[in-house]
Design a protein around this nucleic acid. Structure first.
Lengths: 340, 340
DNA sequence: TTAATGCTTGTAAACGCTTTCAGTCGAATT
DNA sequence: AATTCGACTGAAAGCGTTTACAAGCATTAA
């Protein structure tokens, strides 16, 4: 591992016979330099293999051309498309993405955000609207623009990009009730530190009430985002009285667990019980039966987050909120309840 | 978005009544400062909410406490566990992870690596052993330690952490041949820019030859990492003559496509055809039938990469290679071939 | 011809921190 | 009591860029 002495602006300047200021200008504001000279400098840059020193650059310019993102987990593809959407736009604008995950924990999220801030970021994408107050404070104190995604909430004091979780889950409830279901259960995500899960849980109950059906509290159970846990809960729900004819799952992964357990238990889906998801992961159309779910516009949200963030940075203002709805994907895991 | 003037070492120093040097020492080498003084400084840090400026720090110390990783894609959970393994160890050591993806493209990989280098990284994790020469050169010129993962290759001039793709796929071939299969096909990943896919393809053929079976070239087909493409290829393979009794898939996702298409076509798995994967994603035990596959030690590889990288940084030497084998997971998608 | 006007380019001062080096101070040694 | 030594602390020199600001040089207008 031999380390060649790193080439700096000085080396480039010497080779091109100009001052370091000119080299810097060629790289940052090329139109301010005479073409002929610029070519000479660029040739020197190339021949020496000069790569600027980001830290020095950041220190001097107060800009990092870096955006941070803290997502709950990388373990599951829910956020993958969102990250891609973010990344795509960022790299088209020559920005870099710094990615961190918080494992659905607000304290951990704060740590990650702090680490990102230390490292230097010009903007940040967060998921959801539950955050530690100090997280938001840190961002505000440093004047770092940020957006909250996977949610759209006009009430929120912070800019949000996404959909209204209550409204979306209501679509699903309507679909189910429309099919004739009256006894509906739910395997919700854990609501602690996760207001998306909470909004879905509350939203489902509210929607039910609105349609004249009294939700049965013991049929609404929270569950970790884990297939095996979901299987247990499904089992429990199936053994409840009255037995639900439809089960709404907080996310697709939970629905996979429910589907799997139903199969194991010999329960026919959708004949004996309808099951629904939320996300529309790639596999949701491949499971058996294909899952009725809500298609979350992940890519679009990530992409929009990038746009709004860069806009905010450029014009030095708070990013704007944007609403992007989810879409109900009706497949074969839902049907009219069997008469019993 | 009101920006409070950022607090610097000077502010902390003033409040604590010490010099900036002492503040810096408290943060970086606390044992070099008298406890009493240190406490005073730390109190000032806390009360002012001081967060160091990473760029300035990096510039002065030539260290970033940041490790980069370039993975092929975030769209699929193959690399997720690896990233988690990396992340876990890094954050335990107060290092930050910078993640980028290259979409299985070497040119793109170079760009990402360059961006990371500019941004400042102390070490880098790459996936696979196919890289653009200039990528390796850049790293070597800058003296940045790196490891190649998802592969173990003693021949490679660079440190590799992972398993031997040829040897692993041979395990699968042996399993199949052991069951009595003689006509074996393969849906391999695209080998362009991806030597893992290539090693698996070549390795499968070699293993077959070794077991006295002549591989039939037209039964070995390359395919994008995409469920729908895999379905097409499966169909094609099934319609070949002679018809394969077992199909090895380059990765689990391809196997999902094969499984799905088999189901659609009314072909019983494993009775009429055995199907195998490579990765052991979480869903592989949930598909129908549960998939026989090779469990890739992703978490361990990522974790080991982090360890070796930090070690290399600390002792200023090239990281060491480590071999971590995959494990054959025999489930229900493979069985003895039906007599015909 | 001369002064004014634009463009370019160079000089030098930050940017916020780390780290070397020299110096201070109290305790231990003689 | 003088000397030595060690443990701390502070002053100051960078680290590699960017970016006012000043200066130079044509070119144009007067």
């Amino acid at each position: 591992m031999v380390k060649t002495p790193t080439v700096s602006v000085h080396d480039v300047a010497r080779q091109a016979g100009v001052s370091i200021a000119t080299v810097s200008r060629c790289l940052n504001k090329p139109e301010a330099v005479r073409p002929q000279l610029r070519d000479r400098v660029m040739a020197a840059v190339k021949s020496l293999g000069y790569v600027p020193h980001g830290a020095a650059r950041a220190l001097a310019s107060h800009k990092t051309r870096t955006i941070g993102a803290v997502i709950p987990t990388v373990d599951n593809t829910i956020f993958a498309a969102g990250v891609r959407g973010l990344q795509d736009f960022l790299s088209s604008q020559n920005f870099t993405l710094l990615l961190a995950s918080n494992n659905y924990d607000l304290e951990e999220e704060y740590k990650q955000v702090e680490a990102l801030v230390v490292r230097g970021i010009d903007g940040l994408m967060l998921v959801g609207t539950s955050h530690a107050p100090k997280t938001i404070k840190l961002l505000q104190d440093r004047g770092i623009p940020f957006v909250e995604t996977w949610s759209f909430d006009e009430q929120s004091p912070n800019p949000t990009i996404g959909f209204n979780n209550k409204a979306e889950i209501a679509k699903m409830v309507q679909h189910l009730v429309g099919l004739g279901h009256k006894t509906i259960g739910m395997i919700a995500g854990e609501t602690k530190d996760n207001n998306r899960a909470e909004a879905r849980l509350v939203g489902a109950k509210e929607a039910l009430v609105k349609l004249g059906i009294q939700p049965l509290d013991h049929l609404f159970i929270e569950c970790k985002y884990d297939v095996d846990r979901a299987r247990e809960v499904f089992r429990k729900l199936w053994l409840s009285t009255p037995q639900p004819t439809a089960i709404i799952c907080g996310i697709d992964v939970i629905a996979y667990g429910a589907l799997y357990e139903a199969d194991k238990m010999g329960i026919a889906v959708p004949e004996e019980v309808s099951i629904t998801g939320f996300d529309d992961l790639e596999f949701s159309r491949l499971v058996h039966p294909p899952l009725t779910t809500l298609k979350v516009p992940s890519y679009e949200m990530g992409n929009m987050a990038a746009r709004k963030l860069l806009e905010a940075i450029e014009f030095r203002r708070t990013p704007q909120s944007v609403r992007i709805d989810a879409r109900l994907m009706i497949r074969e895991s839902t049907a009219r309840p069997r008469q019993r």
